[in-house]
Design a protein around this nucleic acid. Structure first.
Lengths: 163, 163
DNA sequence: ATCATTGCAAACTGTTTGCATCAAG
DNA sequence: CTTGATGCAAACAGTTTGCAATGAT
């Protein structure tokens, strides 16, 4: 089923290489955080990471976690993302991508979006000549699409509730 | 230039009507908040509102502001939006729309987006049959586009800095 | 007289910092 | 031996809550 089997050492070396590539020492804390995110492919909150690491028998202190998350974001190994609910999560996927976000539980998964034009031109609301002129002066960098949705498990919960 | 001139009383009555329409008494605090947002068309943070109201000579206490913001959001007169920087702002524009957001200062303006297809289909990353199947079970509600950008005044600041 | 609203102060949540200790180069 | 990492505890920012005073019906 899984054609490429990643051995722990292989992943560990990968993590170590990435850390050194950005000038960070491959300390235990940093390796634990990155390995967790790479393995699970989830968008954890800081709290969720604390719990996950505790559950794995490799707990970290809050201070250490936050200190390292900040460094990892600064050095570009992680991205900090804030959902529409205001909850901060960390994303190990560095490729440009979009998010599917559950409106109920905040769960977030990486997606591409089919049918998205290469360039998206903003149009002012309300549309007036002066607003148009002002808007033209913004330099648009990148579009980020958030697809609000209901995830499968929240749908089930809703169905159970209505039954 | 402005074909329809809104007199203060007119706007006041509008605010009052809207409040009553959702079953909220048109108290001073609520009218001040709504009038501020309708007049300026800005996406204020709570702190910015406190300051703006103080500057207008009609200060509110933090508690009162937050209490009322929550009610106004609950009753659907305002929308709470969190930018990519994690800062919470309030949006009085209830029509579906997108946001142009300054990466430097967080300023946010409402826009429509030209060329956006009616339906956007999410595609899993990485694309595998099982991921595809799982993704198909999400119920997609609404796409929300955030255009990261640099606003005119931040562009000027950058130019001044490089000179 | 009753019930909603205000606003102070205290509580709370998520995050950051100061600092003593410990580990690595 | 010098520099960086850890983790406790205290500080901090933004938001919420308890409660007494006030205002509206």
């Amino acid at each position: 089923m899984a054609p490429v089997m990643r051995l722990p050492t292989e992943r560990g070396e990968d993590v170590q290489r990435r850390l050194e590539a950005v000038g960070l020492r491959p300390t235990l804390a940093r390796r634990l955080v990155l390995e967790l995110l790479y393995e699970t492919n989830c968008h954890y909150t800081a709290e969720e990471m604390l719990e996950a690491l505790r559950a794995r028998g490799t707990p970290l202190s809050v201070a250490t976690l936050y200190q390292n998350l900040r460094q990892l974001v600064e050095r570009g190994l992680l991205r900090k993302v804030t959902g529409p609910d205001g909850v901060v999560r960390y994303d190990a996927n560095l490729e440009p991508h979009h998010h599917l976000i559950c409106r109920r539980c905040g769960r977030m998964v990486d997606v591409a979006v089919e049918g998205l034009p290469a360039t998206l031109r903003p149009v002012p609301l309300p549309t007036t000549p002066s607003a148009e002129r002002e808007l033209a002066r913004w330099r648009v960098l990148a579009p980020h699409v958030e697809l609000e949705a209901i995830c499968p498990s929240c749908q089930e919960q809703e169905e159970a509730f209505h039954a």
